[in-house]
Design a protein around this nucleic acid. Structure first.
Lengths: 214, 214
DNA sequence: GTCTATATTAGGATAGAC
DNA sequence: GTCTATCCTAATATAGAC
């Protein structure tokens, strides 16, 4: 792996583990066993590293979020889809653990992030309207909007919130719970004849929870 | 006001406005028009100030959260009660905007905060079970637990999330929306004969939104 | 209690040799 | 591309006069 790439890789790792504010350029170069001078040859500084990492995150996450806007998903796929979104957020959790501050410091990231956030809501809206059109969900327009907002908030902060609770959940368990938490937001709107979908989810959830063990 | 008190007051103000990491001891003393030396006479440093502010926050918020555990609230009071909780969180929003980091830095705060968070969930649980016992809400135990978790998350992050969206909502509007967002989480579980409660809330919400302008 | 002046440190950043 | 050595700055913190 080229040095530039290794810097990004190591930074992402350390940021996620220690929290971005607690990682210095020297920490990064120590971890990589290169000199700080070398790091500065490849990047103007920590800011540039963060911007590069965010650029990557933006590309992959917005691709993920746009997919269901173009091609319809089945109900089962929608459910699996949530895992994919959470997974990607998990990979850049350092970013979410420090959102307010980062967006305050970097105006460029701020603008891009806002678009991502809107895209999250838009995707949730598209997925749910579709399910509603199939008669699986029965929900009014205004309730749908509020629901999508809650889903976006939950997607944004669930993993951070799990961290806060500090019940040493492994990442798969935390993600798994997050998915189910979202399912729970949607479940009350399932049409009567589709209540079984929720019950199946629940069974799956409990099985998987048992498997992830403790 | 004594100097010690003014330091706490000014710090809280600046932290909320600029974000705690962006405020230095010198900023605080400048704002107060005292010397940095003087500030250090009263507090060992920024850490001590933050700890003192958190101690206050803990006392007032845990009092608020414990109130409904002792004395039953009417449905209308529960609704108003949410405003009180949000208001208190708003007063210490600097804390919430930097949660992960602060809890990572101060172990003492970490422990106390976890208790607060559990208390939030516990209070939500108590309020909702009561309403459920009156037959107003119809909800299973497991759904209730998940709902309370979502409410805690929303309480914790709603104001931060509004900030992120950066649609220049004034604080009253943001709080107002937060309250309604929570109402929306609960609404689907209202028993049929109590659907009117939600419709009344909605009418109130729309009236108030109009009043708050935008 | 408050000030001025100064010390300490850590993090970010560069210059110049190899 | 990489290293060593060094600099700059901002933030924290203290000493000692008033």
């Amino acid at each position: 792996m080229k040095t530039r790439e290794r810097i990004l890789h190591t930074s992402q790792l350390l940021f996620n583990e220690e929290g971005e504010p607690n990682v210095t350029t020297v920490d990064i170069s120590n971890e990589m066993e290169i000199s700080p001078g070398n790091l500065y040859y490849h990047f103007k500084g920590k800011e540039a590293i963060i911007e590069a990492l965010f650029a990557r995150f933006e590309v992959t996450l917005s691709d993920i979020l746009r997919a269901p806007l173009e091609k319809e998903l089945s109900v089962e796929d929608s459910w699996f889809y949530l895992y994919v979104v959470f997974e990607e957020i998990y990979n850049f959790r350092f970013f979410y653990q420090n959102l307010t501050n980062l967006l305050h410091r970097y105006d460029s990231i701020n603008r891009k992030y806002k678009r991502l956030m809107e895209l999250k809501t838009r995707t949730a809206h598209a997925l749910l309207s579709e399910v509603a059109n199939h008669g699986i969900l029965s929900i009014e327009d205004e309730e749908l909007n509020q629901l999508c907002e809650s889903i976006t908030l939950l997607l944004t902060y669930w993993l951070t919130y799990c961290d806060l609770k500090g019940q040493q959940l492994g990442p798969p368990a935390a993600i798994h719970q997050g998915v189910f938490q979202i399912v729970h937001l949607v479940a009350p709107y399932l049409s009567d004849e589709y209540g079984h979908i929720y019950r199946e989810c629940k069974a799956l959830y409990q099985a998987a929870t048992a498997e992830l063990g403790h």
